[in-house]
Amino acid sequence: MSFRSAEDAGLVSSFLEGDRRAFDELMRAHEDRVFAICLRVLSDREAALDAVQETFITVYRKAQQFSGASAFSTWLYRIAVNTCFDQLRRTRRHQAQPLPDTTEPADERSQDALESVELRPDLERALEDLPPEFRAAIVLSDLEGLPLQAVAEALDVPIGTVKSRVFRGRRLLAEHLRNLSGSSAHQRGEHDA
């Protein structure tokens, strides 16, 4: 158990014994990372702050359900990701996108979708275009640097599924970045002409 994990476990125990400051300390220790995860998943600062708030309120109310089988941080990220998914469903800012059944590259429809909106050739936009399940896997694994096992626990899926989602997510991301970059170059060419 890492120092952080041991400290978190102690703070959870203190909080459950009635020490409210222990909760505040837990929040301060993790709020930046939870915010980063929520912002990357939701692509909206205000929505991300709402999700962070909801996450910590859930932790406050359900701390007694933390079993200690995994690290507190993993349990926390799981709540955060689920909160983000709930928020995405509630706001319907993103239509539900079923996971692709194959590992084939994005089809023409996805290309049409990219062309139908204002293109911004940056990572944020490419991430936003990923299905939420892929995006969450990439955010936790590649942006937050969590071990695959922790990502699997946070997403509540087998580790093989995480590997698959990360791989396919990266591929889609790179294709989106290429498309965005190509469209940008094309637009610049038209402008120059």
Binding site: D32, F35, A36, L39, R40, L123, A126, I138, D142, L143, F167, G169, R170, R171, L173, A174, E175, L177, R178
Partner: peptide, 15 residues
């Protein structure tokens, strides 16, 4: 594609 994605992700600005 994997390399390109990783390069972009690793260069992402911190939140």
């Amino acid at each position: 594609l994997q390399r390109e994605a990783l390069e972009a992700l690793r260069g992402a600005a911190p939140v």
